[in-house]
Amino acid sequence: MNPAGPRPTTAARRVVPAPRAGRQLHGGPLVYAVLTLFTAGSLLPLVWTAVAASRDNARLARTPPPLWFGGNLLENLGSAWTDANMGLALFNTTLVAGMVALGTVLFSTVAGFALAKLRFRFRRALLLLTVGTMMVPPQLSVVPLFLVVARLGWTDQLQSVVLPTLVSAFGVFFMRQYLVEALPTELVEAARVDGASSWRVVWHVVLPVARPAMAVLGMLSFVQAWNDFFWPVIALTQENPTVQVALTGLGRGYVPDQAVVMAGALLGTLPLLLAFTLFGRQIVGGIMRGAVKG
């Protein structure tokens, strides 16, 4: 294939061009139909979570399953809220996810920049180490990690979840990949030649360029930290939970109440969904801008 081949000049061809796949083309009904189908598939499980959360246990047990909202939504949300300590959980999760996102972005950007553009000993080794870490199954580290956290006296405190999560090999790798291409080496060198210190280079050259990727990484880390449950369940207790930890204790009581459990799941997901709805354009734009260089 030779995409950059000579342009045909015959008038005849210009008159009847084959349809183009470029973005200029308007989507036909079929395109909309397929998109509608997939969108429905994406949204239905979430909508049904809300449907289930608005019913009661008995109704959830019958066939056919409920297809439309019932009247118990507020009541179930209320019991999920009080049973699972959801207020504190949401506050904690916001704090944890926010700190993880900020910290990850910060660490990853400077480390990614160094690994991408600066020459120093062990650079390759450190890069390989970082990439290697991505392969480590997270279930693996739990026991030694817990021993570390316990030694530091951090059990049941939020930093036991925040600090280990800051070590995002993916983040460093992601920023490095982005900066390798997005940050022209000449830009760094020019600033250097200007006599700028390394921190000034980071501040004034790297950060502006890295902004889109930083935004994506921040978003990704936030969502991931929000939804993480394996490690938090071990490090925290219901006394000081994150949302996912709170959910593991939900539905207790003499009898697990399915509708309340669904209401809890909904409560835990709602803030992110809300953010996605409000800032959807920015988030999507961010992912796309940050992803190109991936």
């Binding site: 026991v143 021993l147 956290v149 059990t155 049941d156 369940v233 204790g249 697990p256």
Partner: peptide, 20 residues
């Protein structure tokens, strides 16, 4: 913790670490 199969391993780790 709702289920013992999540509770018990946590208890073991906490006992081993003498913390939590």
């Amino acid at each position: 913790i709702e289920r013992n199969d999540a509770y018990y391993p946590q208890l073991l780790t906490h006992l081993a670490a003498g913390s939590g």
